[in-house]
Write a protein that binds this DNA or RNA. Sequence first.
DNA 1: GATGCCACTGTCAGATTCTGACAGCAGCGA
DNA 2: TCGCTGCTGTCAGAATCTGACAGTGGCATC
Lengths: 259, 259
Amino acid sequence: MSGRGFRPRPLGSIVASDMSRSERLLDLIQILRRHRRPVSGRTLAAEMGVSIRTLYRDIATLQGQGAPIEGEAGLGYVLRPGFMLPPLMFTDEEIEAIVLGSRWVAKQPDRRLSQAATDALAKIAAVLPDDLREDLDATALLVGPRAEPVEDVDLGVVRQAIRNERKLGLLYRDAGGVASERVVWPFALGFFDKVRVVVAWCEMRQDYRHFRADRIAALTATDIRYPRRRQAMLREWRGTLGTPGSRAESGKLSSGGAS
Amino acid sequence: MSGRGFRPRPLGSIVASDMSRSERLLDLIQILRRHRRPVSGRTLAAEMGVSIRTLYRDIATLQGQGAPIEGEAGLGYVLRPGFMLPPLMFTDEEIEAIVLGSRWVAKQPDRRLSQAATDALAKIAAVLPDDLREDLDATALLVGPRAEPVEDVDLGVVRQAIRNERKLGLLYRDAGGVASERVVWPFALGFFDKVRVVVAWCEMRQDYRHFRADRIAALTATDIRYPRRRQAMLREWRGTLGTPGSRAESGKLSSGGAS
DNA sequence: GATGCCACTGTCAGATTCTGACAGCAGCGA
DNA sequence: TCGCTGCTGTCAGAATCTGACAGTGGCATC
């Protein structure tokens, strides 16, 4: 009668029977993620209903696992950005999909992301049984060279700006080769036709524009917060697209670029 | 001193300190994966150096986790195809790469794989903290409609044939629309220019050929094992490609298709 | 239908592990 | 110096896990 299909739990539990320890470890990470500033061990212990001694033990265990938790005396604990995926059950095809997708990303022009995909693949491959890995080599094969064109700008800057809702200075060269300098409010970083595309509100045009990453000549990060919420702009922008259809990432872009 | 970076272990250990139970559970899955036919509980127990009673408890626990283990009296235990990923530590960018890649796969023509990617994404999303999920919605955005053309054939048949090294009957329509019937030895399923491509040895041409999935009119699975090893053919085929370069999935295909 | 094999459950004492409390050291900023 | 905090050692009691034993029911073979 039991377990058919995987049912995710609100907070990952590693093993059903040991409700306490393993599950608590996952919870601890979630709690740490919630706090941006350092949290004292005592606070964490209280939040988990456990003694401080145990908390220290738990942290040590997690660090032994590779969790990037840093503790500094007088301050507290911080979790370096990152995330620990709890154990997940995947079908062969789902793993195939993930591996194939990651291999595709690894071949994309976005250098940081490409590297990240390679790293992720290595981590996944390290825990896969040999036979499955061999299957994947044959079946999740990607043919074709790395996608051109490689952009020179550091898209990490864009990601940062999006995450923190900051204005961004842009030196852009449009399809005709005409250069322009703009200040934009970036809120999404998309893929279109093998190119990464920054989607933003353009202060100059007073409208939504998208910018092909390979045509961006220079980026200037700023500390200036733009006045709107990222999510709201994303929704609004989606509304302006032709396809109203599916909820997540449908739509199309005109072929040109910013004007 | 402690944990910087994640170091994968040969066999996943969930929690360093409880060397015994949680780690044993992962091992058990690995052992089950190795055996294709049913294994008796006693065998498993012996292989793990544990009593039968404990083995039953472990199996129950795993099933509670969602592991697709099936036991039948008089036979033994079998693990339905699938794999349980142990807890893995990913950076934000690595998760972004995985999600982006999976979203890309979800938009590909291969229906089964597309569905698998969607399922995998749902599982991952279910365990991600909200803020990270929001970041990903903006930053791992995929723009553009589902890739055309959608093939009609069931590529699952091809996967099966590759996995078991069986011959495959093919009704193929080439670029000029000319139909032909062939028997091929499939050994890889690749991606090229938005189309899935079956790579195989063609008995008719006595050479390696690739077949665009959208031009395959019909597939016939057989039980006839082809005389060579999949891996060897894959290596050989790679050798025939222009690019000798990187080890994994480089190379290019001529634009045509099979002839 | 008798027999053998096997999956599964209940129970219970002993082994193992985890936990909390107490004590103590070290780093850091006020 | 003081206060706050991270971090370690130790140890007894609590919680959990484990193995042994007993018993039920399904299935195929003799």
